[in-house]
Amino acid sequence: MRLLPSKVISPKVGRAAVDRYISGIGLGLLLLGAGCRGLRAERQTHALSTARQWSLRGSDFLQQEKYGDAENLFAEALRHSQADERAHWGMAEVLWEQGDEDQAIAHMEQAAVISGANPRGANPDLIVRLGEMAFARGDYAGALKQADAALSSQRDHGGGWALRGKVLQHQSDWEGAKFSFHRALAAQEHYPEVQIALAEIYQTSGRPQRALATLDAMMDAVQEDEVSSTAWLLRGQAFADLGQQRDAKLCLRQASLNATDEECELLLKVAEKQIDFGELAEARVCLGRALRHDPNNQNARRIQEQLDLSFQSFTSKSSLIGFELPTP
């Protein structure tokens, strides 16, 4: 039997086949890698979605000031995904309320970093909150830095201008503070915190009429029972400077009614002004509340001596005209 010669494969054809084989393997590996990355991305997306559901529930509890429940829910959210901006924000707020300031700031910083990955840029609200935390800790340079960072992200951000004004007011830069507060009001017309701060600047700089106008604009937008004790005190001081004692007394009385016992310094300011107006019984009530909250307050002791002298003086004058003052 005659054997047919075997088919000879040329070297050139062989190399082409090998190249196609290798290319096929490479393509397969690429497709496999892409599939793995896609699967991993899908898992991450699912984890983030789950985390956001937990953090949304945590936000509800945080709003209700149920900090223990909120902390558990935010922790669960972060267990699912460290990329949940809301979970870091919520955990920061809970820890801040619990007094763990360092960890609170760390979580708020992480929330701001995550928000920075957004195509629209970092969330200025988170940056401002970081600045407010810095201000509360006495880090005024840090607070100013965060205010400027927020304004770089969004130039007309009311909170950024408000924080900037707050820092400058603390540093006695009255003009800079007024400019910042006015920019904040341009961005947000009704802004009680800013309006009160602005009124304080006008009042301390000898412009009580402008202080009243600022407070009136604020009070026109709220119910009377929503007005803070600080606003009532400022109105009382402004009316007093304008010589309108009747209105001043009414405002001081309202400031006392709205104040909590924890507002010790405000109560002392009210008492001191009431002594000036001769409303000694009302002053004693305010002073008593302040002393119950802080028995060792030196300012309160000074006002107590002032009040005692005023009672003695009033008693002496009353006895001269045959009128006996009831024992307080």
Rank of each mutant, 00 (worst) to 15 (best):
A16M: 10
S228N: 11
A92L: 07
F61H: 08
E175Q: 05
N123I: 01
N258L: 15
L32I: 13
G160A: 05
S256G: 04
G243N: 08
E265S: 10
W161G: 00
T327H: 14
F323G: 01
I22K: 13
Q304S: 14
Q64S: 07
K273V: 05
A213I: 06
A106V: 00
S256W: 02
H157N: 07
L268W: 08
A51R: 11
H190C: 04
V8F: 14
E132C: 00
W232I: 01
V270N: 08
M91Q: 11
E272S: 09
M91K: 10
C264V: 01
D148P: 00
D294I: 05
S229G: 01
A83G: 11
L29V: 13
V194T: 03
Q171Y: 00
S10N: 09
A112E: 08
S228K: 15
R253K: 08
K166A: 04
L250K: 14
T315A: 14
N258K: 12
N297S: 12
S6W: 11
P326R: 05
E109R: 15
L234Q: 09
E71L: 14
E305S: 13
W161N: 02
A51Y: 11
A106Y: 04
I196L: 15
W232E: 03
E272C: 05
P124M: 04
L130S: 11
V18E: 00
S152W: 00
I275M: 12
G165H: 02
L257R: 10
G159H: 09
Q44C: 02
R253D: 08
R20G: 11
S316Q: 14
F323Q: 04
E226S: 07
A187D: 02
I22R: 14
S49C: 06
A281R: 09
F323I: 11
A271R: 06
W174L: 09
Q53L: 02
Y191L: 08
A186D: 12
K249W: 09
V270G: 08
G288D: 03
G322D: 07
S228H: 06
F277N: 05
C286S: 14
L144F: 06
Q306S: 09
S172E: 09
R289H: 03
A111M: 12
T45A: 13
D294V: 06
Y140W: 05
T315N: 13
I303T: 07
A70H: 01
S310L: 12
T45I: 03
P11Q: 12
R289L: 08
K317S: 06
E272K: 08
V285T: 10
G26W: 10
A197T: 03
G165R: 07
L168Y: 00
G288A: 14
T204D: 13
A255Y: 15
A259Y: 10
G243H: 14
G165Q: 07
A271P: 00
R79V: 05
Q245P: 10
V13K: 00
H190S: 08
L233I: 01
G138A: 00
L4E: 04
